[in-house]
Design a protein around this nucleic acid. Structure first.
Length: 105
DNA sequence: GTTGAGCGTT
């Protein structure tokens, strides 16, 4: 293993008017969004203001992170960062990207 | 046009 970057992005300070569809719309051009999840409260069902974006590859996740980090969405500044507590690699085939990149042979 | 640091819901 080389870089444990993670294919999931953590988006914070999101506007309460933003939905998962909009998130995918904002992150789709930078990579294939496998899943977009907005965190809500278990009781009030109100949006906590942050969400997780999962990409199919790490390179796309970082590209989208640098592209959407500190960007204005729905009139609100958002912060994009790699998720700390990401789900373990379920598919080692989809986690191959930078470390599995052909550097020579 | 809900409250604004954070790492998790259907």
């Amino acid at each position: 293993m080389a870089n444990r970057l993670g294919t999931q992005l953590f988006v914070s300070r999101l506007s309460f008017y933003t939905n998962t569809q909009e998130l995918k719309k904002w992150f789709s051009p930078y990579g294939v969004v496998k899943e977009a999840r907005i965190i809500r409260d278990s009781k009030t069902l109100r949006p906590k203001g942050y969400a997780f974006i999962r990409f199919e590859s790490e390179v796309e996740a970082q590209k989208a992170m640098k592209a959407m980090n500190g960007r204005i969405v729905n009139g609100k500044l958002i912060f994009v960062e790699v998720a700390k507590t990401e789900t373990p690699a379920e598919d080692a085939k989809t986690t191959r990207t930078i470390e599995d990149s052909p550097s020579g042979k």
